[in-house]
């Protein structure tokens, strides 16, 4: 489970003073649920997810990952977490097997457990052909599969995806969407951030609309449609964001 309570992150800027990248963001995601964080570029999605992934410390507020506080028990929280983002790359000079093994070791797994897990993941993701090739020679699809295997090596209870389809071709993006669905089917707690409306429609059980660092609205697709009176998610999004900007 993921629980964020009034998560706030501010930075000091010499010219602009205190800048809030995220402000009082609160939401809760249950196991087997996909929470979609929908927002434009610079809305505060990445900052919020980085706080959940313990990469950034909240200025105020708190969050827990599978019951572990992201500040006071950050190591335990990360042990329950798989984080996949466009910015989480692979080591080009390592092979896919070495890459996955490295993260298995960092997660405290034994060599035998890593070997067994790699076999399972390579079967599932159809990776055997390139498992022992260096990552810098991979196609985008191969890289994504290796990244997925890297995040799943320790079978985490919570998955966070930060714009994972950014810059990917249609086929690779589809495989990512399928993988996110599989995570849900396995009972994992999933947070999925994107600015692609169609992905939200396809995937998310609950959608949170974030803008200017604030979570403006939250609900199922049906609830957001009802709230805005718009059938199209893009129109609903524009309406919610527009109302906030008009204030």
């Amino acid at each position: 489970m993921i629980e964020a309570r009034f998560l706030t992150k501010s930075f000091r800027d010499k010219k602009r003073g205190e800048i809030f990248a995220a402000r009082d963001v609160s939401f809760r995601v249950e196991p087997g649920q996909i929470y979609g964080l929908l927002g434009a570029n610079g809305a505060g999605k990445t900052t919020t997810l980085r706080m959940l992934a313990t990469l950034l410390k909240p200025t105020t507020g708190a969050a827990t990952i599978a019951g572990h506080d992201v500040v006071t028990a950050s190591t335990q929280a990360r042990a329950q977490l798989g984080f996949l983002a466009a910015s989480t790359a692979l080591y080009g000079r390592l092979t896919a097997r070495e890459m996955i093994t490295y993260f298995g070791e960092l997660n405290g797994m034994t060599s035998a457990a890593i070997r067994a897990r790699i076999k399972v993941l390579a079967d599932e993701l159809d990776m055997h052909e390139f498992l022992d090739r260096r990552c810098d020679k991979f196609s985008t699809g191969m890289k994504q599969k290796t990244s997925i295997a890297r995040t799943l090596i320790h079978d985490p209870a919570v998955m966070i995806f930060d714009e994972p389809t950014l810059g990917l071709d249609v086929m690779t993006a589809r495989s990512i969407v399928k993988f996110v669905r599989d995570c849900k089917a396995r009972g994992k707690t999933v947070v999925y951030s994107t600015h692609v409306m169609s992905e939200v429609e396809k995937l998310c059980d609950v959608i949170g609309i974030i803008h200017g660092g604030r979570l403006l609205a939250e609900g199922t697709l049906a609830q957001l449609r009802e709230k805005t009176g718009e059938q199209d998610i893009e129109e609903a999004f524009i309406k919610i964001v527009g109302m906030e900007d008009a204030k």
């Binding site: 990469l55 983002a85 910015s87 989480t88 790359a89 960092l106």
Partner: peptide, 14 residues
């Protein structure tokens, strides 16, 4: 620059 730092920092290592 290569984006692997963030990958590494996500692991449960101090």
């Amino acid at each position: 620059e290569r984006g692997t730092m963030e990958t590494l920092l996500c692991s449960p290592v101090a």
